[in-house]
Simulated scan of single mutants.
Amino acid sequence: MNYKQLDPTKVFLITGAAGFIGYYLSKKLLHQGYRVIGIDNLNDYYDINLKHLRLEQLTTYDKFTFIKGDISDKNMVMKSFEENKPNIVVNLAAQAGVRYSIENPDVYIKSNIIGFYNILEACRYYPVEHLVYASSSSVYGANKKVPFEETDSVDNPVSLYAATKKSNELMAHTYSQLYKIKATGLRFFTVYGPMGRPDMAYFGFVDNYFKGRPIRIYNNGDFENDLYRDFTFIDDIIMGVLRLIDTPPVDIVPHNIFNIGNNKPEKLMVFIRALEKALSNAIGREVLFEKIFESLKPGDVHATYASTDLLEKTVGFKPETSIEVGLQKFAEWYVDYYKIK
């Protein structure tokens, strides 16, 4: 089914609307003429100016309504559902970051557990046609079998962040079973692109380069057994989300899980060389990062690799943007945004 066949009167409620994925999804829906209610707490986990820029672009649309609030505030969540009566909810609000969760566990429980519980409760009392929510490839932990399939065991998370995302899947399954809430969880794989998150490695590498600092690579300098990551360009993520929004589950327990990844993991060093080349093209001179190699950090895994067979079978879509194309778009945006000469 083509996504545009959805009823144009549908109301979408998107949490984390000023975030990376939330912004792009909101913008796409608004461009197609839908009404979007965006919720975001605008926290300062990373550069707040970037969140404000995204929000400014969304507020140019007449059908966008912004609510500044934290999904851990149950009264705010319930009021938002009661007043706006959303047909479809996409929960993208969460405290992100694997390493950050090791030092700051409280915020993960507050946002990712209590916040998601509040969303589920709101969907229970103000029924919606479909709840779509962000999970993460981190739920696969240190699984050795690749590519990761949705049916694989995810009982051994290696970070609190991963544990909260696994908890979200269990909670959603339970609410789907008890209250017949149609819910779909999306396991995102290393999302990157223009206007992305500054806490992500690729963004930090470029920041450090222009600040005259070396980049730190946590692979022990072992190029033969380098880390692999399934880098997925933001446009592919949004297309996958849109297709799945239009495909609510129909099982007895109406809860589905899908990977959205590029299905083509790249060695970290190959990705870094592609980033150097993209940045070189963007500024017109050769870029080579100064590199410091360190050991793997707690919570990191050796490889992420998405099987996208289920996604392709269900909605006929498979992410396929190459890192060369995706990183070039990011590099050009970065140079323009930060006014690099």
Rank of each mutant, 00 (worst) to 15 (best):
T60Y: 02
G33S: 03
R54A: 12
K74N: 08
Y45I: 15
A93F: 00
I21L: 10
Y24F: 15
G19L: 04
K51P: 11
K79P: 10
K27A: 06
N75E: 13
T59K: 14
G16I: 05
L29Y: 05
Y23A: 05
I21G: 13
R54K: 12
N84K: 06
D73C: 08
H52F: 13
F66S: 02
D62V: 15
T65Y: 09
K63E: 07
H52C: 11
N84Q: 09
R35S: 06
Y23H: 02
G69E: 03
Q57L: 14
G33T: 00
I88K: 01
N84C: 10
K51I: 10
I39F: 03
L29C: 05
Y23V: 09
A93P: 04
Q95M: 07
I21C: 10
E56F: 08
G19Q: 03
D62K: 14
M78H: 06
K51D: 08
K63N: 14
L53Q: 07
I71M: 04
I48R: 05
Y46H: 08
L50Y: 03
M76L: 15
L42G: 05
T65E: 13
T65L: 15
K63M: 10
L55W: 00
A94C: 11
L50V: 02
A94E: 03
H31A: 15
S26P: 11
E56H: 12
E83N: 13
N75Q: 13
L25D: 00
G19C: 08
Y24T: 14
N43G: 03
Q95E: 13
K68P: 09
I71C: 04
H31F: 10
L42R: 02
L58W: 05
N75K: 14
D40Q: 00
T59G: 08
L25V: 04
A94M: 04
K51Q: 12
V90S: 07
H52A: 09
Y24M: 15
Q95S: 04
N84M: 07
N84I: 04
A96G: 12
Y34N: 04
M78Q: 11
F66W: 05
G16D: 01
N91G: 04
D73Q: 06
